[in-house]
Design a protein around this nucleic acid. Structure first.
Lengths: 200, 200
DNA sequence: ACTCTTCTCTAACAATCGTTAGAGAGGCAG
DNA sequence: CTGCCTCTCTAACGATTGTTAGAGAAGAGT
């Protein structure tokens, strides 16, 4: 890992725990093991570190969104109750919510949305707008498959979205992201979907 | 309004917009129109201002919770669909979420939960634990009244709680709290309850 | 007239913040 | 060997932060 990468890694860990303002350049340099002026060789100022992190995150997200369609079109694998849903959830989990870099970035955005307009927008896009669109797409497929009516789907996706957010905050965005908490999250998501599918 | 009250008022407005750390003693004093040393006559340090605000909020909340039982026991007034629910919602809205001091305190806690353990606990209590308990109580009353089964009620209250949170963040905890946004919030809450009552 | 209390001021303090100028160390190309 | 480029260092800068010592002003009670 290069010095620049190490700086970004340490900064991300600290920012996502204490917030951008609460972390000083000296904190980061102390942890990395360099002098402050060395940091300024790699980044033009403190904001530049944050900007580099969000830029990296943006690229990561674009990559994910680029591959979403082919995954959604895959037929349901064995052990899955319906097309798209569980596949999409593991996709949403393993390569986004559970993925270490993304998880820390989400925590960082969650804290910093109140101090930074650009981050607020990115946070809303990557945690609300984009997921909602994907979830809506899935529910509409299920509606077309006859699982429920289109009107029901429109309401259900809102309920689902709100509930997923609650679970995400509860299990994935505070404290350490342990294997146990991931599994409990996945289990509750699964239970929720089972409930939805049964009731109709 | 005394100087001390004015300080707390200005501090609350600033803290709830920019966060505790981002607001300096000089910012507050400039807005109030006093010198820094005058502030230190009324508060022993910066943290003391925050503590005074949370103490005042705690008292406010205790007063609200103290009166919750008698309100829940009132019979449904005309124009209401079911006992307790709408009454409780206006109670939750008018004297809590819409109430200016509480609304600003919630915003402050929402930002500061990530930098302050005590505020994190207060935030979870006043925005999750307490409301959930009250909502559970209402849904259990509805279950006993035969509107749905107790098992259904346990799931419905989770859905309801998650959905209310989403609406609260969407309408009440960002930007200016206008009369229009309050009404849109109330309307969506109402629609949600109608949907729940119909489906059973 | 006097003191005592309450409140506000002037003027500074030390600590920490982000940031920079400039010197050295090491490797690679000529 | 020389010069150049990349990277890291020492050492400081000015600005801002929370905080304090101590002096005045105004009113109430004696």
């Amino acid at each position: 890992m290069t010095t620049k990468e190490k700086i970004m890694d340490v900064a991300l860990h600290m920012f996502s725990e204490r917030g951008y303002e609460a972390v000083s350049i000296r904190d980061i340099c102390g942890e990395v093991g360099i002098k402050e002026s060395t940091l300024y060789y790699h980044f033009k100022n403190k904001k530049d570190i944050l900007d580099s992190l969000t830029a990296k995150f943006r690229e990561h997200i674009e990559g994910l969104l680029g591959g979403v369609d082919e995954i959604a079109d895959e037929p349901a694998a064995e052990g899955q109750e319906f097309v798209g849903e569980k596949m999409m959830d593991t996709y949403m989990m393993d390569s986004y919510l559970f993925e270490p870099f993304c998880n820390l970035m989400i925590r960082l955005m969650m804290i910093e949305q109140f101090h930074n307009e650009e981050i607020r927008e990115l946070y809303e896009k990557t945690m609300f707008t984009d997921p909602y669109e994907i979830q809506m797409d899935i529910f509409m497929r299920l509606a077309k498959a006859g699982t429920f009516t289109e009107n029901e789907a429109k309401w259900l996706v809102r309920d689902y979205h709100a509930y997923m957010n609650m679970l995400t905050y509860k299990y994935l965005l505070n404290g350490e992201l342990t294997e146990e908490r991931k599994q409990r999250y996945a289990k509750e998501v699964h239970e929720y979907m089972q409930r939805i599918m049964k009731r109709q």
